[in-house]
């Protein structure tokens, strides 16, 4: 982000459109990527990113001056968590529709066809439990520390450490052996 992030945020809070546009351009991909791994769907992640930005615009007076990035990731997590909860309910009420939706996701075959470790890790990440994949993305992509991740996922630093370790172990197990890194 820019050096004068606080100034941009202050301007955005007061409804300054260019400042808001700067924030949007800067953070839309970050929101999308986090949502993409939480929701395991590109289309849903795109909708979620747009919804979150709209909410950000409508409630711009609530944008914090400090710690904007962790706050935004928390908003994204909460929004995606709500979507996942709705999906669970939908899965119970309309199982056929839900299966249809789930079938749209990239399969392991597609990931293997890419014969690329990155594609497999991308596939593997969405197979993990919600908290573990969220912790992994926040730690290794957004470079957040355990405390920041804990504040986003409502957990202690120790729990975050456990999620990260478990997530990595599971990732190792679900990725086919020939494509696995050596630990």
């Amino acid at each position: 982000m820019h050096d004068n992030e606080t100034e941009i945020i202050l301007r955005a809070r007061s409804g300054d459109w260019p400042a808001l546009a700067l924030l949007i351009d800067e953070y839309s991909p970050a929101i999308f990527k986090f949502a993409r791994y939480l929701l395991a769907s590109e289309q849903d992640a795109q909708d979620a990113a747009a919804d979150i930005i709209v909410r950000l615009y409508e409630k711009r007076d609530k944008i914090p001056e400090q710690g904007f990035h962790p706050w935004l990731m928390r908003v994204t997590y909460n929004h995606c968590h709500d979507i996942l909860r709705r999906r669970q309910v939908l899965g119970r009420i309309l199982p056929r529709f839900y299966r249809q939706q789930a079938a749209c996701e990239p399969s392991l075959d597609e990931a293997l066809r890419e014969s690329d470790q990155k594609a497999l890790v991308q596939w593997g990440l969405v197979q993990l439990p919600e908290k573990e994949r969220a912790a992994l993305v926040l730690r290794y992509y957004y470079q957040m520390n355990y405390e920041e991740i804990g504040s986003i996922l409502d957990a202690s630093s120790a729990t975050v450490g456990t999620w990260l370790h478990r997530g990595k172990e599971k990732l190792k197990m679900i990725i086919p052996e020939q494509m696995r890194w050596k630990v």
Partner: peptide, 15 residues
């Protein structure tokens, strides 16, 4: 290596 791979995989997610 594993950490770097996770970071790279997310960074290169198609937007």
């Amino acid at each position: 290596e594993q950490n770097e791979l996770i970071s790279l995989a997310v960074r290169e997610t198609h937007v």
